[in-house]
Simulated scan of single mutants.
Amino acid sequence: MIEELLPESVVAVEALRDDPLWEAPLHPEEEGFVARAVAKRRREYAAVRGCARRAMEKLGVPAQAVLSGERGAPRWPAGLIGSMTHCDGYCAAALVRATELASLGIDAEPHGALPDGVGATVFLPAEAQRLAGLAGERPDVHWDRILFSAKESVYKAWYPLTHKWLDFSEADITLRPDPDGTPTGALRAELLVPGPRVGERTLSSFDGRWAVRAGVVVTTVVVPHA
């Protein structure tokens, strides 16, 4: 599913609930990061890194440990950029050569309503208004969950470019469903704070895609070099 939302230059590997990657072993260097974690957390941590190592191999890069850096951001091999995500029964990693893209972010969430009260603390008034309109048109889609996931993908694309925090309130995201009626579409995040510099431009927005399939919401954000 996720590769359909990303450029061809990006290698994406995903694992559904019954995929053998959910039994992937931890790299010895990764053990210390989850030494005290519960079994579920260790399994997710290992599975998503199994996806990342398979993506490395597809790019012709030796499979290696993916350690956590600042704010938990993954540290990729030299020359690569990427993003990882996992939720109950799904995990994925997306990697690309740094010459191809400036940054990318991916996120996955279960396709269900957000817990009570989360939206009020996460969404801007304008976003909440647009969500209400979308829900009126397609009540079978959990638009609040898609928007939450989009905010996570935006942050994951933002952080490697800035090494700064981006609050949920600092990006105004619009979801645009595809006209064919399938639960897929585009997203645009208007940055409400000064954006990062990429090449000769200062970014004021990020663009991406979203999809709902098999009970999972997936969002992606891609930042080109130009």
Rank of each mutant, 00 (worst) to 15 (best):
E29H: 09
E30S: 13
E30I: 09
E31V: 12
F33T: 06
V34D: 09
V34C: 15
A35G: 08
A35W: 08
A35V: 11
A37H: 07
V38C: 12
V38T: 10
A39N: 04
A39C: 00
K40A: 12
K40L: 10
K40W: 11
R41Y: 05
R42F: 05
A46P: 06
A47Y: 06
R49K: 09
R49E: 05
G50Y: 07
A52Q: 05
R54V: 14
R54G: 02
A55W: 05
A55G: 04
E57S: 15
E57H: 08
E57P: 06
L59P: 02
L59C: 08
G60K: 04
G60Q: 10
P62L: 15
Q64T: 15
A65I: 13
A65W: 09
L67W: 12
S68M: 10
E70K: 13
E70L: 12
E70I: 07
A73Q: 13
A73C: 09
A73V: 03
P74V: 03
R75I: 15
W76Q: 09
W76E: 11
P77V: 11
A78T: 14
G79F: 12
L80V: 13
L80F: 06
I81K: 15
M84P: 03
T85M: 09
C87T: 08
D88S: 08
D88P: 04
G89E: 00
G89L: 05
G89R: 01
Y90K: 03
A92N: 01
A93C: 05
L95A: 11
L95D: 07
R97K: 15
E100F: 11
A102K: 14
S103T: 08
S103N: 11
S103Y: 14
S103W: 11
I106Q: 09
D107I: 07
A108F: 01
H111E: 02
A113H: 00
L114M: 01
L114S: 01
G119Y: 07
V122I: 10
F123E: 00
A126F: 02
A126V: 10
A126R: 08
E127Q: 02
R130M: 03
L131C: 04
A132E: 13
G133K: 05
G133F: 01
A135M: 12
G136V: 08
E137P: 04
R138W: 10
R138A: 13
R138Q: 14
D140H: 04
V141I: 14
V141M: 01
V141N: 00
D144H: 04
S149P: 00
S149W: 03
S149M: 02
A150V: 11
K151Q: 03
E152M: 07
E152G: 04
E152Q: 14
S153Q: 04
K156C: 10
A157L: 01
A157S: 08
P160S: 10
L161E: 11
K164A: 15
W165C: 07
L166N: 07
L166D: 05
D167K: 06
D167E: 15
D167T: 08
